[in-house]
């Protein structure tokens, strides 16, 4: 039995008077890929923002490797190795590619292993090396996504959290992103993926949760959920 990297217990949060999360319980198991699925407005992003400490939790607990990190700020969580690759524009556009990677290795923990991380990241994304001196904002959408993931890896994550990495990418690039995630999973990296792309996510994930209206509706292994009728009805329209 593998240990749990992140345990979320009865997490509640929201904005102002509006409660979005109504008591979430979920676990991220070490060395596994855990996926959170949900349509727009289901509370996925709010959950991630709460998990990272960008918004304060109202109630509940977040435990990282047995340690209570519920009320830690985002940067202290990053120092502990909970690294998020945020959704949307996920790079520093005014810096060049190399500087972006340097920023990734910002924490003391990561800086010591900068060279190793860099080698690993280049072996994963050889194309980035050709573009070291290019301004990150001028990369193509797919390359920017690769850079964002690479930057996340430079932080030496204990848990890598990916927020909708396939958002706004061409189908071919979406496949590439998922192949990369699969590769990282095979390397033994603990990951938490938040996605809308049900098909591809379920194909590679170890375990998945489906959020709707701020609550966990269904959970199970990737295989179980792919066969589940409820999922098919709700998400695949079959």
């Amino acid at each position: 039995m593998r240990g749990k990297a992140i345990e979320v217990e009865n997490l509640e949060s929201g904005y102002g008077e509006v409660k979005i999360l109504w008591g979430l319980n979920l676990d991220v198991v070490e060395g596994q890929l855990t996926t959170i699925l949900g349509s727009n407005g289901s509370g996925k992003t709010t959950f991630l923002r709460t998990l990272m400490g960008i918004i304060k939790p109202w109630d509940g607990k977040i435990i990282f490797k047995g340690e209570d990190v519920t009320n830690l700020s985002t940067y202290s969580k990053a120092e502990k190795g909970i690294i998020m690759v945020p959704e949307g524009r996920m790079i520093f556009p005014e810096m060049n590619v190399y500087e972006n990677l340097e920023m990734g290795a910002y924490t003391k923990r990561a800086r010591e292993k900068f060279e190793d991380s860099l080698d690993f990241v280049i072996s994963l994304f050889p194309r980035l090396k050709e573009r070291f001196n290019q301004k990150a904002g001028t990369l193509s959408g797919g390359e920017q996504q690769m850079l964002a993931i690479a930057r996340g890896l430079m932080s030496r994550p204990e848990v890598l959290i990916l927020d909708e990495p396939s958002l706004g990418l061409a189908p071919k690039l979406v496949l590439e992103v998922f192949e990369t995630i699969k590769k990282l999973k095979d390397e033994g990296l603990t990951m938490l993926l938040v996605e809308q792309n049900v098909h591809l996510s379920l194909a590679i994930t170890d375990y998945a949760y489906v959020i709707s209206e701020g609550r966990i509706k269904i959970q199970g292994t990737g295989e179980e959920l792919s066969k589940s009728d409820e999922i098919r009805k709700a998400y695949l329209g079959l």
Binding site: M52, I54, S73, T74, Y75, A78, E79, I83, M84, V85, P86, R89, M90, I91, F92, P93, E94, M95, E99, E102, M103, G104, Y106, T107, A110, R151, S155
Partner: peptide, 19 residues
């Protein structure tokens, strides 16, 4: 660098580990 990171994207700067 840290100043510029904050200017470019504050959320991102924070999630990279910058106070």
């Amino acid at each position: 660098y840290k100043f510029r990171a904050i200017r470019d994207d504050e959320t991102l700067a924070e999630s990279v580990g910058i106070d």
